[in-house]
Amino acid sequence: MGRVGVAEVGHAVPADERIHLRDQVLVLARRSTLRSLRQPGQVVFPLLFPLILLAVSASGLTAATRLPGFPTHSYLAFALAVPFLQGALFASINAGTDLAIDIESGFFNRLALTPLRAPALLAGEIGGQLLISGLGGAVYLLVGVAFGVHIAAGVLGAVVLLALAVLIGFAFASLGALIALWLGSAEAVQGFFPLLFVLVFLSSSNLPRNLISTQWFKFVATYNPVSYLIEGYRSLIISGWDGRALALAFGIAIGIAILALTGASRSLRTRLVRT
């Protein structure tokens, strides 16, 4: 018999075990949330840092709105999508770092000695970050509205915006978990942060893709999936309901989540070695 928790995935699960699985996910998600709330840096920086960058870009790049074809007169409205994605990056790093610390400290072995199911471990660790992503999304939205941004898709659009923020937070937290389970080191996880941040800058975060004149930058931004995640947020804020932009954003986020979770599950089989 090999790798108990993982081998159980996909089997028909009796009702008692389903309850046990649900309880496992909830208790681990609670732990993850408590850990985040008890580390002010995990809450304050994801909220503050993107807002500071938003303030800098909104005050310094206003002239860009005068470019022909720029989709809005408010650069703040245009840039408001970016903090949502930066918040997701923090979720990625926080989820990955917490998981890597559990591996390094031996807490993972403690969990492995219980009848813990592998999906519960992943869902619990990642689930805790969803709350932070949702909270962050709500704060960015409120700040934007407070400074005069009108959400073109209305109240329902704001709800969809938050849902997209939570989904993208989940996808990036899964990516963080994958990196943690793959490398098993908190430092290595944090080493990925600049790389992910560069991906945000090499996207349509500062200008619409059709207005980027530098060819190589335009090429990278076009093939950078982050562009489409940002454009999904942005469509709800400045254009209203854009089915294509939303489908691409939700589709890419789901794709990232599926790929990251699949990879994380495979890495977990190696990490959670139990006979």
């Binding site: 496992q24 208790v27 732990r31 408590l34 850990r35 008890r38 403690r110 219980t114």
Partner: peptide, 15 residues
């Protein structure tokens, strides 16, 4: 970051 009681509750649930 967890208290002693929280550790034991976590363990009790996982068990």
């Amino acid at each position: 970051l967890l208290t002693g009681r929280e550790h034991l509750k976590l363990q009790a649930t996982l068990q």
